[in-house]
Design a protein around this nucleic acid. Structure first.
Length: 701
DNA sequence: AAGGTATAACTTTTT
DNA sequence: GTTATACCTT
């Protein structure tokens, strides 16, 4: 090996993080500080220098996208096959373990995986049965999910209640829910973590086996772990305590899903000899953006303080513009985008418009369409959540796991077979009486001839179809899906668009074995739509995490929107809103623009809006402050002029110059024109220097 | 069992 | 104001 590839283009802190390979390590990686670079190179370093097998480094991320990216980049460093390495999401890793070991917990290895909607369906069913107001199901589902992600069992929860309040009812629902899941041989997302924890806690032998399998553990986005996930990591960490957790407490924005920032704050307590490394050099944003976002986040107490800096130069001031209405706000955003685009420095894909709630996208969409600017909305609704797709997949789940009552309920009358509520409840009763699954119960009722004549044929046809498909062995999941679509009659009564979706599903199942495909669609799911090449991105602040754009707009900078009104009287939620704003700002590379409105129509009411109090924390000297709230003529004119980024700059950023005493350096920034130009140059070994172009006597190279 | 009208709720969402 | 759900009608 020539010079060490792994340690090229690496700053001292990153290097330290990469080569620290014994004992616990916490890497506090500020926004844009090259976190993924550190993890992937560390992985490669452990393999190449420390002779770990790739399959012995347990690497967890939160999203499939992050896992994929990581594998891709690791592959660039290592010639060994990493196909069967353990790089994946928490859920896929647990799935892999549980498919092998779950019999120890009394489940069968062919368990179904329930997503949120399956989970909600089951909870509604239970609420109905326990005669509890059904519309509460969403709240109940999220409470249960938080309990599970905090490792509180139904028994524990019931025992700590007073026995009277709503919590008592909730406890009963929770207990029954867990019971039903087991009956269905199904796991929800929280179970996948919780049961793996239980597996390791109750079975030291199994735990030891995995200790030997995984002498090193790498964790990405550690600030987003919930208690169960953290417990899992502790259980998985063997006596040598080789665990490296990478995260940023300032970017913890998923508390509502159970994420617990205190995991990152307590890491040192749990691993007393932990080494802590801070990554504070930022490779993404201008110093101005870092100063502004840094000042805002500094107001949060109890954080691991970080001071981000960059070699990029100060860049432009950020913008804040307040308009009369949402329409004007949107128009301002659209025109600013067009303006910058026409100046030729940016393409449409370089822009992102970020907002707190999805509702806000609509006005922006209208305005962008008005200016004929191409855009796409990154939304939560994924391909796999479409009704027709979920239906077909439910057939597949039922075929793999006949105890899967939730899937059976879903498809029993889809396509319509005339099997309604009354028939289903008869089957439910029979199932309860004979303590079997719904499918088995339906089957025995048919045998005993205790089904209404009018639907007997339909039901028996369904049962036969399911059994016939079960009995067939398919080479690929695509073959099975085709069979399902044809034999169940699903194809006969759907519109063209839905049919297209199904065909797409089938083609995505080519060359994959049935069970692998079922796991994949259950765990891989969401947002893997193709990247949009040439258009402006619209998304929530939450979905923007992990991304970066040269130009970022954050709209709705108002009390009640950002921070959202539900957070206003809760201190810790308020801190999270601030972090959310911080995450948004640190997405920007060059230009950051904040907007807000004076009056907003929210739901049916028109409200006077106060500017977000977060704006008060922005250093005035870093920001162009624009109020467009009068009704004058000029208001109707274009957006305020965004200073041209580079009109024939004296020195091109990134170019090399020579200074009489400091030698050769790289131009990081150049602002101003003619004789006033100020230029920032990084001289290796000397550091950043800000020079007046007139006097500096620089030689272009 | 399907289709219609009234009613209420209205964040964020890695898996 | 919009959307999803709940209940009522045929």
């Amino acid at each position: 090996m020539a010079k060490d590839v792994l340690l090229e283009d690496i700053n001292p802190q990153q290097k330290e993080a990469i080569i620290h390979s014994k004992g616990p390590l916490l890497v506090l990686a500020g926004a844009g500080s090259g976190k993924t670079r550190v993890i992937t190179r560390k992985f490669a370093y452990l393999v190449k220098k420390k002779k770990y097998r790739p399959s012995s480094i347990f690497t967890v991320t939160f999203t499939n996208k992050a896992a994929g990216e990581m594998k891709e980049r690791i592959r660039g460093f290592i010639d060994q096959d990493i196909k069967q390495s353990w790089v994946g999401t928490f859920h896929s890793q647990c799935n892999k373990i549980l498919r092998k070991e779950i019999t120890a917990l009394g489940y069968k290895p062919d368990f179904s995986i329930y997503d949120d909607s399956d989970q909600c369906n089951l909870i509604r069913h239970i609420l109905k049965e326990l005669k509890i107001y059904e519309a509460l199901y969403k709240g109940v589902a999220s409470r249960i999910s938080i309990l599970k992600s905090s490792l509180v069992s139904p028994q524990e929860f019931l025992s700590q209640g007073d026995g009277f309040s709503f919590d008592e009812k909730l406890g009963r629902v929770y207990l029954k829910y867990q019971d039903e899941l087991k009956r269905c041989n199904a796991l929800d997302f929280d179970d996948m973590i919780m049961l793996t924890v239980k597996l390791f806690e109750d079975h030291p032998k199994i735990r030891n086996k995995y200790h030997e399998l995984f002498p090193y553990i790498l964790v990405d986005e550690f600030q987003d772990t919930n208690r169960a996930q953290y417990r899992l990591l502790q259980l998985l960490t063997s006596a040598e305590k080789n665990i490296c957790a990478v995260g940023d407490d300032d970017q913890s924005i998923y508390k509502f899903r159970g994420a617990d920032v205190s995991n990152i704050l307590n890491f040192e307590k749990d691993f007393p000899d932990a080494k802590i490394i801070k990554l504070e050099q930022n490779y993404r944003s201008t110093q101005n953006i870092l100063d502004v976002s840094g000042a805002v986040i500094a107001k949060n107490p109890k954080r691991k303080s970080k001071k981000l800096w960059t070699e990029k130069g100060c860049g432009e001031k950020i913008f804040y513009c307040r308009t009369n209405s949402e329409e004007e706000e949107a128009k301002y955003v659209a025109r600013s985008i067009k303006d910058l685009y026409l100046k030729g420095n940016y393409e449409y894909k370089d822009f992102a418009v970020l907002y707190r709630i999805n509702l806000q996208a609509r006005a922006i969409e209208d305005a962008l369409r008005g200016e004929t600017i191409p855009y796409h909305v990154v939304s939560g609704i994924s391909f796999y959540h479409r009704k027709e797709i979920k239906d077909i997949i439910s057939y597949m789940k039922l075929i793999i796991n006949r105890d899967d009552n939730v899937s059976l309920r879903r498809i029993i009358n889809s396509p319509s077979r005339g099997i309604g509520a009354s028939t289903i409840s008869k089957i439910e009763q029979e199932a309860k009486k004979s303590s079997q699954g719904l499918f088995a119960a339906a089957k025995s009722m048919l045998k005993a001839n205790s089904v209404a004549a009018s639907i007997k044929d339909k039901l028996s046809e369904l049962v036969k179809t399911i059994e016939r498909i079960s009995a067939t062995s398919y080479k690929t999941a695509a073959d099975m899906l085709k069979d399902i679509v044809e034999r169940t009659g699903y194809i006969d009564e759907i519109e063209e668009e839905r049919l297209q979706n199904i065909l797409e599903l089938v083609s995505s199942a080519e060359n994959i074995h049935v069970k692998d495909f079922a796991d994949r669609v259950s765990l891989l799911a969401v947002n893997d739509e193709p990247e949009h090449k040439a258009s402006v991105s619209l998304m929530t602040l939450h979905s923007a995490k992990g991304l970066e754009f040269p130009v970022v707009f954050i709209i709705g900078m108002e009390e009640g929107i950002l921070p959202y009104f539900k957070a206003i009287d809760d201190v810790s939620e308020m801190q999270e809103e601030r972090r959310l704003f911080y995450v948004g700002m640190t997405r920007a590379k060059d230009v950051l623009c904040l907007t807000g409105v004076k009056r907003r129509r929210l739901y049916s009411k028109v409200q006077e809006q106060e500017p977000s109090h977060f704006l008060r924390d922005i250093p005035k000297e870093c920001c162009h402050w624009v109020e467009k709230i009068q009704q004058k003529q000029e208001t109707a004119q274009g957006p305020i002029k965004v200073p041209p980024k580079k009109i024939a700059p004296l020195y091109i950023i990134g170019s090399r110059v020579k200074h009489p005493s400091w030698g050769v350096g790289i131009v990081r920034d150049c602002c101003g024109e003619g004789t006033d130009a100020k230029i920032t140059v990084n001289f290796p070994g000397i550091g950043l220097k800000r020079l007046a172009a007139k006097f500096a006597n620089l030689e272009k190279m």
